[in-house]
Each structure stands twice: as structure tokens, then as C-alpha cells.
């Protein structure tokens, strides 16, 4: 895998941006029954959609490393290695995998990806892949069955669905404003 200077800078900047987004209070939307939307959890979706598979995936892996070494970068000022031992751990790892998958799916198109298609891609990564990592680890650390944990996660789905649509709209807006991607 070869990375040029701009790749390294983009990896670092998307990791830093994901962190910066977590420093701000979540925005509560009236639709979705007041589910708080933290801009941070869209970090992995947008890193994948905008920076691509390799750079987006590595950016979120770098973000996970920064959290692990004790920087309080997760929304709400959480951080430290302990976080990986809690049910959240699988989700943080899942972010990196999700960014990679989303980037890979977007790379299959040359021109602008139609909005509906990009919503599907971001949902596959941002919901599918994230829970694929998150649920088993949660179940393992909490001694619960996967089915029970998966049932609990359905609570988050409406909020996730909104984030996916928002991320797709943001990605489209950014690509239009910055065509050189």
C-alpha cells in the first residue's frame, strides 16, 4: 500500500475532524423523537464517502488509536483504552471497517453517485458493518446473547437512518463544492 504526502495529510485530517466533531454538543432534531444526532458518528460515513476506502479506513483507524492512547476524543469527552473493553469497543473498531467499505463501494462509480445509491452504500457501511463489529463485542463483554443485544440496538436504528441520509446529502454537497475529489 503506497501513501503519498497528500494521502497521509488527508488521513490525519479526517481523524482530527472526527475528533473535533465530538467536541461539540449533539444537535437534537425534532423529527426522530428528539434522538440526539452527534456529528461525530457521521465521521466514519463521510470519511469513507469523501476520502475513499484506503484513506477513510486508515483515518478512522488512526482515530481509534488516538482514543486508545488516552485522548478524550469520543463524544462527551470519553477516551482511554478502557473504552475498548466496554460494549462501545466494537463500534469504534467498526467505524474504521465501515469507512473502508463505504469508500470501496463509492469507488465503483466514476461520476457522481446517485443520491439513493449513496444512501444505500452509506447504510451498508454505517449501519451494517458498524453493527457487525459492535453487536458481537457487546454480547461478549456483557455475557449476553447476540440476539438480545441485537434487539436492544433496534432502538438506535431510527437515529442511524437519519444520519445515513444526512451523510449522503453532505457528501453530495461537498463533492459539488470541491470537484477535485
Amino acid at each position: 500500500m503506497t501513501l503519498n504526502t497528500r494521502d497521509i495529510v488527508m488521513i490525519a485530517l479526517f481523524a482530527a475532524l472526527t475528533a473535533a466533531l465530538g467536541l461539540f454538543p449533539p444537535i437534537t432534531l425534532p423529527i426522530a423523537g428528539g434522538v440526539p444526532i452527534t456529528a461525530q458518528s457521521m465521521g466514519c460515513m463521510l470519511a469513507g464517502a469523501l476520502a475513499g476506502a484506503k484513506r477513510g479506513g486508515l483515518a478512522l483507524a488512526l482515530f481509534a488509536l488516538l482514543v486508545a492512547i488516552g485522548l478524550p476524543l469520543m463524544a462527551g469527552g470519553r477516551g482511554g483504552f478502557g473504552l475498548f473493553l466496554t460494549p462501545s469497543g466494537g463500534f469504534i473498531i467498526g467505524f474504521a471497517a465501515a469507512a473502508f467499505v463505504i469508500g470501496w463501494l463509492f469507488a465503483r462509480h466514476s461520476g457522481e453517485v446517485p443520491l439513493v445509491t449513496s444512501i444505500i452504500y452509506i447504510a451498508i457501511g454505517g449501519i451494517g458493518v458498524v453493527y457487525l463489529f459492535g453487536i458481537p463485542w457487546w454480547a461478549y463483554t456483557a455475557n449476553q446473547s447476540i440476539a438480545v443485544v441485537a434487539g436492544k440496538c433496534t432502538v438506535f436504528l431510527p437515529g442511524d437512518a437519519i444520519k445515513v441520509v444526512l451523510a449522503a446529502l453532505i457528501a453530495r454537497g461537498v463533492r459539488r463544492a470541491y470537484p477535485g475529489l
Binding site: 490525519a12 473535533a20 461539540f24 488512526l62
Partner: peptide
């Protein structure tokens, strides 16, 4: 280099976000 850059630019991007 990526680690150093991320640490350098977290406060810069937080400022820009603000």
C-alpha cells in the same frame, strides 16, 4: 507523521468548527 499531524490539527479543526 500521521499521528503528529492529527494531534496538531485537532485543535485547529475544533477552532474552525467553532
Amino acid at each position: 507523521l500521521a499521528l503528529s499531524l492529527a494531534l496538531r490539527f485537532i485543535p485547529v479543526l475544533a477552532q474552525i468548527t467553532r
